[in-house]
Design a protein around this nucleic acid. Structure first.
Lengths: 264, 264
DNA sequence: GACCCCTATTAACCTATGTTATAGATGGTT
DNA sequence: AACCATCTATAACATAGGTTAATAGGGGTC
């Protein structure tokens, strides 16, 4: 069971979609071709700057990045973390200019394709389009949950929540081992993600360590008791379902899209 | 110029899309048919409860609603305001259960259709699908901007920002007259939208009144100087472009989707 | 017209978090 | 090994915004 099946596509995007929906060979090869053009970037490099024209649609193959928005005076909010396998602002590419920036946190490998391909994809592969729409909805759900965090959770709660969120998302792509994962993130970035000051994030992390919920060693973070951490962060199981792959999407697509509507 | 042209669809959704993209007759009649099933709801009624199974895809024809998320202990965050013409969580319907609730703030008229129709739409009308995708991206942009507000703007700034946002969005659907519009919202709801306490929202509104930026009379709010209010809220012009309808989407769709790709 | 519920308003007080400042780690570079 | 830039850590102090509580208005309804 550890080995990939023969037919699994090589693209991270394809692999991700395959985890909740079976793809035809045509769909797979379209996706593989989409991701053919791969670029490499150093740590802390801007893939997109706020106010810039959008270029390509990008898929993160390796590494981390952040999507962030800034105010004129420099205050900054990290909107979301881009993890391996994530699409970077899929639908945003329909916009003229970017309302946010994207910056790598680690050396990164990124697949690029032209936005026109999206429309092509919509015409040729409706099931893929729906799958990607689902993916986009998931991202919106994550952002909304972060809004709830920043608006209504205490510093301790929201920090705990974010750690659990990252743990879950990284688990799906196999980057967590025994509750331990790499967190290539400075405290400043955590602060900007959680709407806190850097000093207070430091205090809060210390408290989580003192309670014994987490261990930090360099960029390695270990979560000792996910259940308890999730409970501190009031991590919602519903929202968790969203992050993980729902089998029913496949059913919906297979059952509903391929049947000719009888009533009309 | 005040009269609608003959060919404009009667559905709010169709009218909204028409504002940035021309539709074929087939597309229009599909949209009109989508919105045939209209239901009416009282003020303060739940269209969707957090944790519930999704039912229909809904389009707001008349009235206001909020999308909100709650913590187990009752703390609540308003994620977004649903205004006339808005789709209520379009892509969310691909999920199994709702991670948020939707509640009307006024008597409302809502069009309902089955989520299967989305997939049908993806297959039959790729241009509509892309237009709706764009609409979804816009919503994500609004939520991300609110995250920036709640995370990094002061109470005064975020309140000013929200008022300008609502003003802009309502302008598009013709619900603002000389800087005045109806704000069918209690201070508790404003507080929940902005991550503030009800007392502090009250203080902040008072300050905005004292400065002379707004007038409140019952549910009528008047913005005297939008420019200045926008500047207090550090309202971003980029983000504004997103909210308003970009002509380039039409060009992208017309030019790119209808041309046979020569190279392949 | 008295009663109620809901919402707005304000004052007084409190606390979670921000700010400023300093020192110590860490890691890359010459 | 000395240097520099970043990052973490902590203390001391400041404040934006939260909490509690009390009052007042406004619109139903019996």
């Amino acid at each position: 069971m550890t080995r990939a099946q023969a037919n699994i596509p090589s693209s991270p995007l394809g692999r991700k979609i395959t985890s909740y929906m079976s793809l035809t060979d045509e769909e797979k090869s379209f996706l593989n071709e989409l991701e053919r053009n791969v670029t490499r970037h150093g740590s802390r490099s801007d893939l997109l700057q706020q106010g810039e024209r959008y270029g390509c649609v990008r898929v993160m193959r390796k590494g981390w990045a952040i999507r962030h928005k800034a105010l004129p005076d420099g205050r900054r909010q990290v909107v979301n973390f881009v993890l391996p396998g994530d699409i970077i602002g899929f639908y945003c590419n329909l916009f003229e200019t970017a309302d946010h920036g994207v910056t790598t946190l680690t050396p990164a490998e990124v697949a690029n394709f032209q936005p026109e391909r999206i429309i092509e994809l919509f015409k040729l592969f409706p099931r893929l389009a729906a799958a990607l729409a689902w993916s986009g909805a998931k991202e919106e759900a994550i952002i909304a949950e972060r809004l709830l965090s920043v608006g209504r959770r205490t510093a301790l709660e929201r920090t705990a929540h974010l750690i659990v969120e990252l743990l879950r998302r990284l688990s799906i792509v196999g980057l967590v081992e025994e509750g331990r994962f790499t967190l290539p993130v400075t405290q400043e970035i955590l602060a900007d993600a959680l709407g806190l000051s850097i000093v207070h994030i430091n205090r809060t992390l210390r408290r989580l360590r003192d309670i014994g919920l987490i261990d930090l060693a360099g960029q390695q973070i270990t979560v000792h008791d996910v259940k308890q951490l999730a409970s501190v962060g009031q991590f919602d199981e519903l929202y968790l379902h969203l992050i993980q792959a729902p089998k029913q999407l496949e059913h919906a697509l297979d059952a509903k899209s391929d049947r000719k509507r009888a009533g009309d």
